[in-house]
Amino acid sequence: MITTQQEYSIIDKILAGDQQSYAVLVDQYKTYAFTIAFKILDSRSEAEEAAQDAFIKAFHYLKTFNRQAKFSTWLYRIVFNTAISYKRKHKHAFQSIETTVIAYSDQSDKQLERDDKQLFVGKAMDALSEADRLAIQLFYIQEFSLEEVADLLGQNVNTVKVRIHRARQRLADELTRILKQEALTL
């Protein structure tokens, strides 16, 4: 883990022409950046490409980083915007394996019912807006603070808190609707 001061001195080095120092920052934030891109794109290869692209963009715009916010916050916003534009550009149905494959095995009925519900929550996630989906997913990952999620979405903490709360209720509503529909088709 590097401190903010260390981060600034690395940035100074990079701006002075030491391109290799950028590797330290990439190593530090690649997992977080990749996770954000993956949560948006739901495809490992696309997320990898988008996250790399975001790091390259961040490098070229590094001199515009004004050091008023944390570098990570600034970087995550670039990752978020890059991943969103990737999604718009390569608009095809990203299908999560989690939501399409049902592996039936020797499980009890209760277990199967639970798995079905999980599958339907996956489906219900599609009903959320891009920002709500990302906010709720990142919120559950302990490594992202609520402040970071709020900064990433360009909103204040309270708004994001409410968004996450409402998104959970919306998911439960969607789950109710899907299960009702499923019951009718049986």
């Binding site: 997992t31 990749f34 996250a51 390259i56 999980q118 929550v121 990952i141």
Partner: peptide, 27 residues
């Protein structure tokens, strides 16, 4: 169910091993 689903998927995703090299090449 919603809570369990989100908790189960609440993990950091690991990028490929040569991620950093690819970024540096891309620069």
């Amino acid at each position: 169910s919603v809570h369990t689903y989100l908790k189960k998927r609440a993990r950091l995703e690991m990028p490929s091993k040569n991620f950093t090299e690819k970024v540096l090449d891309g620069l």
